[in-house]
Design a protein around this nucleic acid. Structure first.
Lengths: 114, 114
DNA sequence: ACACTAGTTTACGTATTGGTTAACTATTAA
DNA sequence: TTAATAGTTAACCAATACGTAAACTAGTGT
């Protein structure tokens, strides 16, 4: 499974996008996320595993004297950058596409006639 | 299923992203897409249905004298715009998040201690 | 030592995905 | 009218996704 596959798959679930939306504002504990989104702990744990695997999210390195049971999740901006790069790449060619469109239709029509 | 769900789900498949990559350069017929991506016609037809439903892609209104059996697919830029908007929204808050991070960790640690 | 808490993992059931082959619709060509 | 072509749809199958309940790990508090 490619990196982009993992990214898009991770974002294709509303609960997981809910996690992103919450983490956008501030890092949060796993149980906070579950409660805020009305998901069970096991369900959220699975979602977080997928988000972690995709690289969109990380469990923050805890301060040394924190409660070690708690896992605080936060966003990993770099992965969103990759997403943006892909989107940029797609959008970069529209001008060209629009310019060449009429000519292409003519070509396609001819081809279809054969 | 929300609009964003459909968008991300559509993009979570490599064959469908392949279609996007090809259409980025120019509109193409369904069979062209199938051949270029090594997919069967029925398989491609299903992928195209999903892409159509997501609004990322459209079958172009054919010129009046074209072969009516042929369906030419092209990108619908507007949907990609929605994707960009979502991404912008996510990215907009990182500065704030980074600023407030240290303070938040302190808060979280306290909370975890209770 | 004991109970409690945070979170993950396992073992399931059900629903959805993505593919195949075969059938079907609509259009074009002989 | 008959055959061929472009594409979609239907019926089916294996693999995966997502949820639940129950068990488990690890850290904390009494």
């Amino acid at each position: 499974m490619s990196a982009l596959d993992q990214t898009f798959t991770a974002l294709a679930d509303p609960t997981r996008r809910g996690v992103i939306d919450l983490l956008r504002k501030q890092p949060r504990r796993a149980s906070d996320l579950a409660d805020a989104l009305g998901a069970s702990r096991p369900a959220m744990s699975k979602h977080l595993r997928i988000l972690r695997a995709s690289g969109l999210v990380a469990t923050s390195a805890e301060t040394q004297d924190a409660d070690a049971r708690v896992r605080v999740y936060s966003l990993k901006p770099a992965k969103f950058g990759e997403l943006r790069d892909w989107l940029d790449q797609v959008e970069r060619f529209w001008a060209v596409q629009l310019e060449g469109f009429a000519a292409h239709v003519a070509r396609t029509v001819k081809k279809a006639r054969r």
